[in-house]
Design a protein around this nucleic acid. Structure first.
Length: 559
RNA sequence: UGGGAAGUAGCCAAGUGGUAAGGCAACGGACUUUGACUCCGUGAUGCGUAGGUUCGAUCCCUACCUUCCCAGCCA
């Protein structure tokens, strides 16, 4: 099925790779990579990039490398390395033993820099950062050549060696590629390729005090690993000429190809590391794994499955430029995935007490209810039923509006898996608030008996008061008001954040079977949506459920 | 105002000289022991705009418009 689809429609990256295979561009096997910098956690956009590289490798029986792009000691940390490996593993994109570190190639990269200097294609520059900015020119004006541009090869070699040996302080000098200060492409105006940073690196320790820049290190890393297709996002398009320049000057044979795809944006959700860090640092959210965040850890805690994320990415297809996918699409895929996989249960979020006046006192019975209406393999469970039950407040209206066909005075509804009940009396407190309903049940209407005597318009869920268990439920909504994504430089997060984005509903009453639920276990709460056990806060004493996504509700919409 | 990209329905996205796939959303209807699911049905005389070439243009040509990326010793 998918084979058919793939032969019918090939996206542009598949076409490029197919073409390279057909023409024998590479004598080695296809190899792609995902090169995160270990300075933050992965998010849905990273998953998109991983998926793109991974699926191409798989499609063409090639390899997929996970490579930590760690050439900046100031930003990187082992904590992130471990988190990234764990997240990728959870997502289901297994790099096997192909986990590499850019910093492991420090010696090679250094040697390549030396050979560039020897070719007269790189020079040590003493300009200060401010001067360099000035010399760089602007978008519309060409830059000026550095006064250090024409140092002799010998001098450059000597200076670069001394840079490496730690003779100069941080930032004192840089190594630059000698390309073209008047190029309309800013990246080609003698880009810095090595800088001095006297700092401890989480892997190489204090071995180095010079570190290569991304634009120099990346093509070399790709070449060392035998990458054939280096697939990255569109903002690197302008860097491609530099990527190719490096590979060409270094005489790399069968050089890897950089190709670009568009970045994934999703409505109402923010993925920039800067914003994510601000939200977390300001404690506007509950850490990197806050269920409202599009981080992999957030999605996981929220209850998303790896399969739903993969299917979502697959369906979007390859993005060519700028696009923002509706979050409803993601929600669709998690509903679709969970629908047949997960057992259902009854949970009352907003309880209303119902006394069944003609049901025997102090008695109860177990009623078998299917765990999944779409999947018999999930079997049945026995749910206790008794004289006093709770139903959802919303399922009763004293004076029903047009179209409402749940419970109201003198009306009858079915209790899921149990009996028909009829409302006879509405009990109110002194303030006129409805606190209790008196109903009668009809034993003949018991579920499973095939009773066809009369019909009801609705089936509602319930929990026996005697057996129900208390639980907290966390309901999530868009983190930002009106799904509006912040884009200013200085953001007043307080003005942006939707106060309803996390609603804690305390003392819900859930079916007793739920006390067995394990962290991260998912359920459908009938007529509410999909929920999972929060692995951070849920305990045996106090169950906490996260709402993954609600069920669609065509009734709410008409109201 | 320099360079690089991209414009197909509310959103994503195929197609690319021969008369506009698919998914999400929305809206009807059927079914229903979840107002869920499922099923059926409804969308562009139109492919950023204006010209041109052609028997024929979303596709080719020209001009224009809009949006995004680039002036880190970040990646």
């Amino acid at each position: 099925m998918s084979e058919e689809k793939e032969t019918m429609h090939q996206d542009f990256l598949h076409k490029i790779v197919s073409e390279d295979i057909k023409e024998g561009t590479f004598s080695r096997e296809i190899c792609t990579r995902f090169p995160p910098e270990p300075n933050g956690y992965l998010h849905i956009g990273s998953a998109y990039a991983i998926h793109t590289n991974y699926s191409i490798a798989k499609k063409f029986n090639g390899h997929f490398n996970l490579r930590f792009d760690d050439t900046n000691p100031l930003k990187e940390d082992i904590e992130y390395v471990n988190a990234i490996i764990e997240d990728i593993d959870w997502l289901g994109y297994n790099p096997g033993n192909r986990i590499y570190f850019g910093s492991d190639y420090s010696d090679e990269i250094y040697q390549y820099a030396i050979s560039l200097i020897k070719k007269g294609k790189a020079y040590v520059c003493d300009l200060s950062p401010e001067e360099m900015t000035e010399y760089r020119g602007t978008l519309t004006e060409p830059g000026k050549e550095s006064p250090y541009r024409n140092r002799s090869i010998e001098e450059n070699l000597d200076l670069f060696t001394r840079m490496k040996n730690g003779e100069f302080p941080t930032g004192a000098k840089v190594l630059r590629a000698k390309i073209d200060m008047s190029s309309p492409n800013m990246n080609l105006r003698d880009p810095v390729i090595y800088r001095i940073i006297h700092a401890h690196h989480y892997r190489t320790g204090n071995k180095w005090c010079i570190y290569p820049m991304y634009d120099f290190a990346h093509p070399i890393q790709d070449a060392i690993e035998g990458i054939t297709h280096s697939l990255c996002s569109i903002e690197f398009k302008d860097h491609r000429p530099l990527y190719e320049w490096v590979l060409n000057e270094l005489d790399i044979s069968e050089p890897p190809k950089q190709r670009e795809f568009g970045r994934l944006n999703i409505t109402g959700v923010v993925t920039s590391k800067r914003y994510l860090k601000e939200l977390i640092a300001g404690e506007y959210v509950d850490g990197w794994d806050d269920p409202r965040l599009p981080t992999i850890r957030g999605l996981r805690r929220r209850g998303y499955t790896p399969e739903s994320i993969q299917n979502f990415i697959e369906e979007i297809g390859l993005i060519k430029h700028q696009s923002t996918v509706d979050i409803a699409m993601l929600e669709h895929f998690i509903r679709q995935d969970l629908q047949t996989k997960v057992p259902s249960a009854m949970a009352i979020l907003n309880p209303l007490k119902v006394v069944i006046t003609n049901y025997p006192e102090d008695e109860f019975e177990y009623l078998p209810i299917e765990n999944n209406a779409k999947n018999d393999e999930l079997g049945k469970r026995n749910v206790p039923f008794s004289k006093v039950i709770y139903i959802e407040k919303d399922d009763f209206m004293e004076t029903p509006v047009k179209g409402f066909h749940r419970l109201s005075p003198d009306k009858e509804v079915r209790l899921k898996g149990a009996y028909f009940i009829k409302c006879n009396e509405v009990i109110k407190d002194d303030d006129g608030e409805i606190i209790e309903l008196h109903c009668t049940y009809d034993p003949e209407t018991k579920s499973g008996t095939g009773f066809k005597g009369r019909k009801v318009k609705a089936t509602i869920h319930w929990v026996s008061a005697l057996h129900g268990v208390k639980a907290d439920v966390h309901l999530y909504d868009s983190l930002f008001i009106n799904h509006e994504i912040p884009k200013d430089d200085k953001i007043n997060w307080l003005d942006m954040i939707n106060p309803q984005s996390k609603v804690i509903v305390k003392d819900c009453i859930v079916e007793p079977s739920l006390v067995e639920a394990k962290p991260e276990e998912r359920f459908q709460f009938i007529r509410h949506g999909y929920f999972c056990v929060d692995h951070k806060y849920s305990t045996k004493k106090k169950l906490v459920f996260n709402r993954i996504v609600s069920l669609k509700d065509s009734w709410k919409k008409t109201k």
